[in-house]
Write a protein that binds this DNA or RNA. Structure first.
Lengths: 394, 394
DNA sequence: AAACTTTGTTTATTCACTAGACAAACTATT
DNA sequence: AATAGTTTGTCTAGTGAATAAACAAAGTTT
């Protein structure tokens, strides 16, 4: 059955609009909200009083007069509830507890290697229990849990495939919901990262954003017309396996010449070996040790390698820019550690080769949330969901 | 100022919903509309009576009883107005006159070569005048004009760049609006084609569609979540310049290894010359003569060439499938003439190399509107616009 | 001190939708 | 043939959310 429109929908939408306006422009008066939204003053008054009853907003007190009665300033009450966001990586678990504005209250990170689903799940329970215990006393408590995973997640929240974790058809969402009796969102890490940047990071003011998450592989999250685009089954964003060289390197996806073989962390490590770049004595060859080498020792080979990778990143991003005409590209995840050396060649490549019209007003940024985009993104899902549900319920 | 929600919006949306339901399921009774939409019977009655007053729908007469009073069947009145759709190609002008359901009443095609903007404009006036003269007498007359062009069109309808026509910054929309005093839509041909297929063609039942328009170059139109995605400035869809070979052929876009150099009509012609494939005596080397060669003479070289091109087309489409997870791919425009030989290698390539999850429920179709997608798409814009405006006005 | 401004509440009104009654027109059963 | 039940479509009364406008409160400006 199609969506029908009635007064309930109207009210819910207007209430959301009022709340969003207050969140964005706080502190703000009722009169100003009415002006900005175009709603009648009376309507705003009535919706505001409901929101105050629900404790979602507070009256801060009188503000500055602008030549008449002093306004009563309103504030989004970000402390009525807390969200848990978890970035479940290939070899780490990053958990954060945030207020309703995405401010991080507590965070914790643990590392592991090559452990089974069951073992990771144990650590996940510990993480959630820990974060829960850190939540201050408040009216709504923990309002939801979001989890970002490096894999393909169906629209129903099932993890269909996470190759680097060796997971297949994992029903994590149901398990978490059952154990904690809270709303749970599971999402691909790149999609979550894109959403995090849109909500709290570099993408706040943009509508069409391409978030390129570069770590071991490359994942892409798309914000189109201001909303996360997920594709017909929720699998969009596998740009990492875009062919950029016809007879290129073999990829485990079955194809060859895939972009992520040339422009990701795995590409960096492969090339470092080929070029015989050695990290400082006793250290393993990793992205971090290479960054150290470039940063502290100013190793010209390491720097040249990063510049090369920047060029390849730029090449793939150019393809994306031509295809989508986004207004912003955000490069995020672990690769941001090498921003200093990647950025010049990357930007140069895009400006040289992207179609000129597509460069109009194009922003190219690195993530400002760096390694926290995903965790913040899934926390944002939980928050959105809570506010949505809360507004409907009365 | 943000969108506010009030009863006017509710009414407009519900009226649209009722009209869409009638269009889709005609002939249909008021009771059935109420059931399908979830609206109250009374509400439907009142909206239907308005639509009848506006002559947009008609009562057909009594239908079959299902064990009670016989229903009055309603029908969308597709003949109250007519739309003009024009596909302005590099060397041709295809004009159609359609009713409000996209049925073609009259069509006309003229060819030309290497002529100036002013000369094309003259032929355009002749075309529009001709189509106007063919419109039957009806309440609303010609309700709008749509024009599809092979170039980059801004959100405001200005043709910023049409390289194959040698056009730059052409304000065609204003000129047509001024001369005919009708609403005019100008759109990129691939975007229009995608919309045409979504509305009237192979894409009717799908939400996330990638329409690949292959003629001299390659353009792509994206239907995401059921709507045309245009990008931040309206320039999305330049997949033709996606790099698929790192050190590939030089492209006039400044880049090299662009997809359209390997998988379009220009690729076919280039390769035919390289392979010394000769068309029948006295004929020029064109896509059509090559198709004749393959079809009538069953020339193995020509067939092999088409198969090769199918492979390259499949390669680029695989990239797109992995990136977007669409539920349908539609290949359209002139290349459809070679469908017979392209299709097997193209489909094989996609099924072999696209990520397996992305193949779930994936449809790969050739256009059923073939060379008419663009003209029908722009006509559809005109129709949509008319119905929208008409519904608002009261 | 008087006049003007700005803020926020209150009241009366409007408008679209819903529920439910009802009439009309038909089918099924006795 | 009479009666009962069903389906369709209209009509009426009522609800709820928004708006316009009046008004009170609390300022500033002259």
């Amino acid at each position: 059955m199609a969506q029908t429109w009635n007064q309930h929908v109207v009210k819910k939408e207007n209430k959301t609009l009022v709340l969003e306006t207050i969140k964005e422009h706080a502190p703000i008066s009722r009169a100003d909200v009415a002006q900005r939204t175009g709603l009648n003053k009376g309507t705003v008054s009535s919706l505001v009083s409901e929101l105050i009853n629900e404790q979602l907003i507070d009256e801060l007190g009188p503000g500055e007069s602008s030549g008449g009665r002093r306004p009563v300033m309103l504030l989004f009450n970000q402390l009525v509830g807390y969200a848990i966001g978890i970035d479940l990586g290939v070899n780490y678990l990053l958990g954060i507890l945030t207020d309703l504005n995405g401010n991080i209250i507590t965070e914790k990170k643990i590392n592991y290697e090559n452990i089974s689903y069951e073992e990771i799940r144990e650590r996940l329970w510990d993480m959630i229990d820990f974060l829960k215990s850190k939540a201050p006393d408040c009216p709504y408590g923990i309002i939801g849990i979001g989890i970002g995973v490096p894999g393909i997640v169906s629209n129903e929240g099932e993890i269909l495939l996470a190759p680097n974790l060796n997971w297949k058809r994992i029903q994590l969402k149901e398990e978490v919901e059952k154990k904690y009796n809270l709303p749970v969102t599971i999402e691909n890490e790149a999609n979550a990262g894109a959403y995090g940047e849109k909500k709290f990071g570099a993408g706040k003011d943009f509508q069409d954003i391409v978030y390129v998450s570069v770590s071991y592989g490359i994942g892409v999250g798309l914000i189109l017309n201001g909303n996360l685009y997920k594709g017909s089954h929720g699998f969009s964003g596998e740009f990492g396996h875009m062919t950029i060289e016809l007879k290129g390197l073999d990829c485990r996806c079955g194809n060859n010449g895939c972009w992520e073989l040339y422009a990701s962390e795995q590409a960096i490590l492969r090339r470092a070996k080929e070029l015989k770049i050695q990290p400082n004595k006793g250290e393993e060859l990793t992205l971090d040790t290479l960054v150290q080498l470039a940063d502290q020792a100013e190793d010209p080979n390491a720097i040249a390698l990063f510049e090369e990778i920047g060029e390849y990143l730029g090449l793939g991003i150019t393809n994306i820019v031509n295809s989508f005409n986004p207004d912003q590209i955000i490069i995020g995840n672990r690769i941001t550690a090498a921003k200093k050396w990647l950025q010049p060649t990357l930007i140069d490549r895009i400006y040289s080769y992207a179609l000129k019209f597509h460069q109009t007003d194009l922003q190219i940024n690195f993530s400002i949330l760096t390694t926290h985009s995903t965790a913040l993104g899934v926390a944002a899902f939980a928050i959105e969901n809570f506010l949505e549900v809360d507004l409907i319920k009365k």
